[in-house]
Computed example of a mutant assay.
Amino acid sequence: MQVFKVMGALALVAGLSAPALAVDTSVVGVWQPDNKESDYQATLCGDDQQRLCLQLVALRAGADKPKNRPYLGKNIVDGAKPKGDKSWQGQLNLFGQTADATFTLKGPDVLEMSGCAYLVVCKTIKLNRIK
């Protein structure tokens, strides 16, 4: 009987704490590539608040160059359209390069950007949530 009381208490505690353990799977936040040379603020934008906008908010180390500074504070993605669950497709304009890109939320703390410029130069970059 004592075992059932303990199991019941654990189930109750687990049930009460479940909302605190909920994971935010929104793309909204601040993201950073593995090299930590830049930060990007992601927001949902557009009339329906379903499009993805990504603004360059910080430059560091190798990325902090005079040629990159004009992009600071600017949207590098402006209104990428929803492509499915946690995925958007649009144009990426970064450091003078433009690419067709897909942005996919791979988990609560990983945003993947996959893009191709000139249909031949393709790259995937993983961004990590920092805020």
Rank of each mutant, 00 (worst) to 15 (best):
C53Q: 10
M1R: 00
Q50D: 00
D64Y: 02
D85L: 09
L59N: 09
A63P: 10
K5H: 00
K83F: 02
K131S: 10
T25H: 13
T98F: 01
L21R: 06
A99D: 04
I130Q: 11
A20C: 07
W31D: 13
L105Y: 05
F103D: 08
W31E: 12
A14L: 13
S26L: 05
V23Q: 15
L105W: 05
A9C: 04
L119K: 15
G46E: 05
G84M: 12
L92D: 02
V23M: 12
T98W: 06
A9I: 04
W31P: 09
L54I: 04
R129F: 13
L105M: 10
T104S: 09
C122E: 04
L52V: 07
A117C: 04
N93G: 14
D78C: 01
V77E: 09
D85G: 05
F103Y: 13
L10R: 01
C45T: 10
K65I: 08
G90W: 00
K86T: 03
G107L: 01
L94A: 13
V3Y: 01
G84V: 09
L119N: 14
A18V: 14
N68H: 13
G15R: 05
Y118M: 12
R69I: 08
E112T: 03
N68V: 07
Q32Y: 06
G73P: 08
L56T: 09
A63K: 12
